[in-house]
């Protein structure tokens, strides 16, 4: 029965992983990544690693992928992805290089140890294997250093996010509706300051900033006066 479940979930995991790469609609790509992550969690369950399995679902499917879905549903979702850039020959060469490196590494792992352990029964597990208590014990004794370093890394990331968000310091008086995406709706966000839409479209990075004198002036004019009236 374990074999049956293993092949079902492994199939789903592979199909999900392939879907991420093959599908053209970014929303479906994200969904297949979710399928992949949940299948991995089920494979962890088969390995009696319940805590890891649940952490996988709660952290990856429940938090990280939620953010992905959020962004893609707002700004992506077209049938064809925008052709923002095409890879340069150098990037292609780098991609092939890294790809083959990973392939060689995996091949060594599979040929070296994984194949030889196929016929065996596997390690004998204690009754408490994979429980949160045991994992916590290990994390706070044997792997304390790695655990603390990882938490420091997360702390640095959190502080960095707060600092980056704080540096913008709100919206100045003269910064109006410069973002060309928003049309007539007055959204007080200056262009190229890292809004979600800009981040995804690559606006301000790969495309030159529009001259506000020339572009979209007729559209923005009434909205801006309306906002001034409010003040």
């Amino acid at each position: 029965m374990t074999f049956l479940f293993f092949f079902i979930f492994a199939g789903f995991a592979l199909a999900g992983a392939a879907g991420v790469v093959v599908l053209r609609n970014p929303f479906y790509c994200v969904l297949s990544l979710v399928v992949h992550l949940i299948s991995l969690a089920l494979l962890f369950l088969l390995l009696e690693a319940q805590f890891v399995a649940v952490a996988q679902i709660v952290v990856y499917a429940g938090a990280v992928m939620v953010l992905y879905v959020f962004v893609v549903a707002y700004v992506g979702g077209g049938d064809k992805p925008d052709q923002l850039w095409s890879a340069s020959p150098r990037q292609k060469a780098l991609a092939i290089g890294f790809g083959s490196l990973i392939f060689i590494e995996l091949a060594i792992a599979i040929l070296g140890t994984a194949l030889s352990s196929l016929g065996t029964e596997g390690a004998t597990l204690s009754a408490t294997y994979g429980t949160p208590a045991e994992i916590g014990q290990l994390l706070l004794t044997d792997y304390l250093l790695a655990f603390e370093l990882a938490s420091m890394l997360l702390l640095v990331a959190a502080i960095g996010a707060v600092a980056l968000a704080g540096r913008r310091g709100g919206i100045a008086e003269d910064e109006g509706n410069l973002s060309p995406r928003h049309g007539v709706v007055h959204t007080p966000s200056p262009a190229a300051t890292g809004s979600m839409a800009e981040g995804v479209s690559g606006y301000g990075v790969t495309t030159p900033l529009p001259d506000p004198q020339l572009e979209g002036r007729e559209l923005q004019q009434p909205a801006r006066t309306a906002a001034e009236d409010d003040r």
Binding site: A41, Q50, F51, V54, A55, I57, V58, G62, T131, P132, A133
Partner: peptide, 9 residues
């Protein structure tokens, strides 16, 4: 053994 985490999943 994972208790409430199961509900969060």
């Amino acid at each position: 053994s994972i208790g409430p985490l199961y509900v969060f999943a």
